[in-house]
Structure formats: C-alpha cells, structure tokens
Measured scan of single mutants.
Amino acid sequence: SAVVMEEGSPGEVPVLVEPPGLEDVEAALGMDRRTDAYSRSSSVSSQEEKSLHAEELVGRGIPIERVVSSEGGRPSVDLSFQPSQPLSKSSSSPELQTLQDILGDPGDKADVGRLSPEVKARSQSGTLDGESAAWSASGEDSRGQPEGPLPSSSPRSPSGLRPRGYTISDSAPSRRGKRVERDALKSRATASNAEKVPGINPSFVFLQLYHSPFFGDESNKPILLPNESQSFERSVQLLDQIPSYDTHKIAVLYVGEGQSNSELAILSNEHGSYRYTEFLTGLGRLIELKDCQPDKVYLGGLDVCGEDGQFTYCWHDDIMQAVFHIATLMPTKDVDKHRCDKKRHLGNDFVSIVYNDSGEDFKLGTIKGQFNFVHVIVTPLDYECNLVSLQCRKDMEGLVDTSVAKIVSDRNLPFVARQMALHANMASQVHHSRSNPTDIYPSKWIARLRHIKRLRQRICEEAAYSNPSLPLVHPPSHSKAPAQTPAEPTPGYEVGQRKRLISSVEDFTEFV
C-alpha cells in the first residue's frame, strides 16, 4: 500500500504489510482489554486508547508507543517513533504512522508483537499521559499493580500540603484535648505513684524565703500560729474566702420596643432579638451553673441549684474572672410580681450592659438600685453597626469618660462592650471603697496581704499580753509611738528610695 506524505515531511518511507502472525497476537491482546472507555466527539468514531511506554525494544532499544483501536470491530496495532508526526486519522481507513528506516525489517515488528510479559508489566506500571491515566485505574490494570491496600497518609489540604495544625504542634487546635488526655493517663497511674504529687513543697518555699535578706529584721520574721485558738483558725479560714484573682460581676439587660421607661417590662423579658443573642455568645463562655464549683469559678452570688437559672456566661484571663448576670437567662416566676429574684442580683451590680433595642433613649435610673454606678448603652444600628456610649452617676464623672461614643461592628461589639464594662467596674470598686478611707481597694491579692498582716499583728499583741517580758514586734495601731529626735535631713532622693524599699516589703498600697 502507498502512503501520501504530508508537506514538509521527509522522503517516502516504505511501509510494510503486517504479517498475519502479528495480527493474531494483537487480536488476542485486544480481546482481554476493556472496550468501555469514554466516548469521543461525534466527528471521530468511538475508540479506546491506552498509551504504553516501553523502555527498550528487543534487539533495537527504541521507545515506541502502542495504540489499540477497535475500529470496525477489528483491533489494530500502531507502532510509531515518538519524534515523528502521525498522519491524519479517518473512520474509513486504518491508522497509518511513519516509521524510521531502522524499523524497515519486518522481523523487528514480529519481535515487538512478542514482547515478554516482563516488558508489558513494566510498561503498564509506568506513568501514563492524559486520558490513558484514568483508564489505567480500571480493573483491567489491577493485575499489573501490587496486591494489598496502599499505606494511609496524613490529611492533605486542597493545595496538596499538610495542614498547619499537623506541622506545628504548639498551634494545633487540639492541644488542650491532648492535655486532658495526659491528665487522664496520670489519673490511671499505679498505686505506688499515687503518693507522688507534682509541684513545689510549701515548706521548701518557706525555707528559701526565711533565709532571704527580706527577713533580716525582727519585724519581718515569720511567727508560728497558735493551734489552740479558734479565733485565729477562723481568720485563716476567712483568708480562703478572698480569692487571689480579681472578680467582676456585670449585669446584662435587654430593652425591647416600648420598654425604655418600664423597669418591670425590662426585667420580665425572657429572650431578645437575634443580634442580641449573637452578642451574648461573644461576651464569654456559656457555663452550666450546676456543674460549677464556687471555689474555682466566680459566680457573683448565683445559685447553683437552679434558683437563678441553669446557664450563664463568664469570662476570665490570667488575673481576673468576670460573670454576667443576664436577665433573660434568669427564670421569670409568676409568684414574683416585682421580679425581686432578678433584681437582687442586677440591682447590686456596679455596672450594667444595656442592649437598647427600643429605638428610644434609655435613662440612668430606670433600673432603681443603690449600686448602679455605670451603664454601657448598646444601640443597634443599620448595616451591622452599633452605637456604644457610657452613662454614669455624677459622683463617678471624674473616673469615667462619658463624652466619647463609639461606632462598632457586630463582630467586635462583644469585645468592646466587655472591656468598657470591666474598666468601669474597676473604677466603681475604687469609688465605692472611698467610703472607708482606711481600706482603699487596690486588688484582691493586696486584700489578702492586708488580712495576713492584721492576723500577724493580733498574734503579736496576744503574745505580748500573755508574756509581758516579750517586746511587741508591731505596736498596736491605737498606741502612739514614742517621740523621736529629728534626724539629720537627708537628700530627698535617698528618703524616697528608703521609703520605697520599706513599702515594698510591708505593703503595696502607695504604689497603687
């Protein structure tokens, strides 16, 4: 048969007729292969192709491409040299491709048809291009793949890379869960390890502090508590009631339409708007009261037996805890006409967050109470924005700035309102402590230090009264110190430094 060459192609190359033996071998191979691939376009007849790359030819070592076609129900084999250009295909004639002069020997084609199974398996396991790669995943090629499931790999992101949580363990979102698992493993320790309690022994800490320079003076030496005195035992138990972190309780009120001037209507609300609910979820963490331990979680007086509701929101960081007394989460009882059960919590909070959804101005004093010092007013606006402002009593104007209003988005509203309420509550605590000038409020841990110092002074006084020969370590507060001759004046800087060093040991009130 003659071949018409394309323009620009090399000279004529004689194409030899395939021997009958080659056709029989390739026909047997075509019957084993699956003929249901995917359909081509209507211009080209339905056909199945599979590209198999052999590394070497037997005796020649030339890479070839073998295409199996099922045109007219008769499979045909096409061998081509890759750099050459194939002729145009037609549905009426068999596929013809040019070969190099080196394939002119018909014996070479017979060798190609009689490829060993080793070469076929190696060509099938190679990388296939384009559409033949999808075909190689079918059941027909499963014989050339190794048996057994593939090893499982770690989760992959859409980009093909490992997620960040699997790369950096410290930033993994499941870090707290692993800590819980470690605690569970520790709890399952053997009885021999049960006595080993991690941490620092208080006796060891005391020993280090006792021999430090801070205890060089007799006034700073630790003293032993009497065991037989019940009054001192009660004082030590009272110390446990003062937490070592700051605590805040903040009221949250929802004002519906037409309720801006009605205290009873505001306290009777059992739910609010959708934006109000989203605002609550951002204030803190939802907790169930019956599962809380009052000595570990500050509840601000809420009952854990269901008297004040089942849930509330709280927030904490390293040095403070805040609980929100939310009116809509507290039960509304029919027998309580004046809502006294709610007001006994909300009316005693220094700061209230008022979500004013009424469309009218909310005035300070609508919720009557002796300790309502500051109101954080949240007014929802259009386009997911809110107006946040402050209202306070006249005696609080020096501590709280009420002249600045803020426009905040719904997303950042819980954070801004919480921070403003916490700052206002700190100012309210300082303002409330002014009624007792001898006990200015600095912080909870300073209050613990003052309680310890008062307890020490009482013990020293009782020891001096029981044994008059012992001198008083600290003179009583009601006694007057003996007159001392004025010492020589020293520079102001040295006096300030000495006073600062003494105050650092005794108390921190002056620095606050």
Rank of each mutant, 00 (worst) to 15 (best):
P468W: 15
I353H: 00
I367R: 03
A464T: 12
L302S: 15
A464Y: 07
E257N: 05
K333N: 10
L470C: 13
P437Q: 06
T312E: 09
I459C: 08
V354M: 02
N436C: 08
Q259R: 02
N269Y: 01
H248V: 15
E270Q: 06
P486K: 08
W445S: 11
E278L: 05
Y465W: 11
K342L: 06
L329H: 05
A464D: 13
N372Y: 04
V297C: 12
R275K: 02
P476E: 15
S477M: 09
E397V: 10
D318K: 04
V376C: 03
R458W: 15
E461A: 09
D349H: 07
S229L: 11
D308M: 08
K296Y: 11
I287H: 08
G258A: 05
V376T: 01
L289P: 15
M330D: 05
K221G: 14
V495G: 15
T490Q: 11
R498G: 12
Y313L: 11
L302C: 14
E462S: 08
L455R: 06
P486Q: 12
L449A: 11
P489L: 12
D240F: 03
E384D: 08
G309R: 15
L399I: 12
C305R: 06
E257S: 06
Q310K: 12
M396R: 03
L381Y: 05
G492M: 12
D401F: 03
Q391Y: 04
A251I: 02
G309N: 14
S389P: 01
T328G: 02
K406T: 12
Q497W: 08
E233D: 10
N372E: 05
S443L: 14
T402V: 10
V404I: 09
R450P: 15
V335R: 11
D439W: 07
A483M: 09
L413N: 00
H316V: 15
Q241F: 06
E384P: 02
Y276C: 00
L381C: 04
L238C: 07
N356E: 00
G284N: 04
H325E: 08
K499M: 12
Y313P: 04
P222L: 05
F279C: 00
A464G: 08
L470K: 15
H432C: 07
S428H: 02
D291F: 12
A327C: 06
L224Y: 13
T490I: 12
Y441R: 10
V252R: 00
K337N: 15
K363M: 09
I319N: 14
P442H: 05
C392S: 05
N425Y: 03
D439Y: 12
G282S: 03
A487T: 10
S260Q: 13
L381E: 03
V255M: 02
H325Q: 05
Q370K: 15
Y245G: 05
R285I: 07
S219Q: 14
I223N: 05
V408G: 00
V505P: 15
V408N: 01
Q237F: 08
Q484F: 08
V416T: 04
Q484G: 12
T379I: 04
Q391L: 07
K394V: 14
L264Q: 14
P331S: 06
A463G: 10
L449M: 12
I407K: 02
G359P: 02
G300V: 04
M396W: 03
R458D: 15
C314R: 09
A427T: 05
M420D: 04
A405L: 14
P482A: 08
G256N: 03
K406C: 15
L449Y: 11
Y276R: 00
Q321E: 13
N467L: 14
P489D: 14
V416Q: 03
V354H: 00
F415C: 03
S504R: 12
L238M: 13
N425D: 11
E278Q: 10
N436I: 07
T438D: 14
K453I: 15
P489Y: 08
V376M: 01
Q429P: 01
L286Q: 10
T312N: 05
L224P: 15
S469N: 15
C460L: 11
T402E: 06
H271K: 05
D410T: 01
S273V: 00
E307K: 15
T402G: 06
P414M: 01
R393K: 11
Q259I: 02
L449F: 07
E462H: 06
R450M: 08
L283Y: 00
Q230T: 11
S409D: 05
A487K: 11
L387D: 03
T438K: 15
A265D: 07
F362Q: 01
D308W: 07
E397T: 14
Y441I: 12
V304S: 09
S428D: 00
Y245M: 09
F232Y: 11
L399Y: 15
L390M: 13
L501R: 11
E510Y: 06
K444I: 10
P437C: 05
S466N: 14
R500A: 12
H431S: 06
A463L: 09
H271R: 05
V408H: 02
S479L: 08
E461C: 07
T509P: 13
Q321R: 13
H375N: 15
